[in-house]
Amino acid sequence: MDHTQTAEPTRRDFLFIATAAAGAVGAAAAFIPIIDQMNPSADVLALASIEIDLAPIQQGQAVTFTWRSHPLFVRRRTPEEISAARDVKFDDLLDPLARNANLPDNAPATDENRLNRSGTGAKPEWLVLVGVCTHLGCTPEASTATSRQGDYGGWLCHCHGSQYDTAGRVRVGPAPRNLDVPVYTFLSDTRIRVG
């Protein structure tokens, strides 16, 4: 077919390139809402933060809440459980990192670092963990006064046998990491906000 060649091919090419570029930008911008609509909607994000009243929880008792579609373990530890966690030799731990969202990523997994010392001072009896096994996502079962789950007084995951201690740290695999400690803060002695 006859394409009339103009005397300035560069000017014509620039026009076509500019138009194509503008079109590509427009098409990409038009695609953003299509992709972004799959991100969590505003009502889902609103439930990303919950407040929990700690007063009804007795010493030695653990309660499971729902937070961001997952179980949230809140445990009020007995002094024996606290000292059991503190007596563990650091080198015996499978995962040396604290996995505490309130602390820097490289904080070591000491028992103190598994707590949140914000708000009203150190509260070693309160343990708040995301109840999702770090292996493949099952919900581990907690030891109680009458039923011991695993050999470390903490949690046992029945799916593949991972065991956690009284600070929620993994002691027997196949789970690779300690149970996560979420972002939370003490609003008062008896109230925390998670997330």
Binding site: L15, F16, A18, T19, A22, G23, G26, A29
Partner: peptide
Amino acid sequence: FLIGFTALLYLA
């Protein structure tokens, strides 16, 4: 954007 893009397309 569309008015500008339409103008570019017209020239093209």
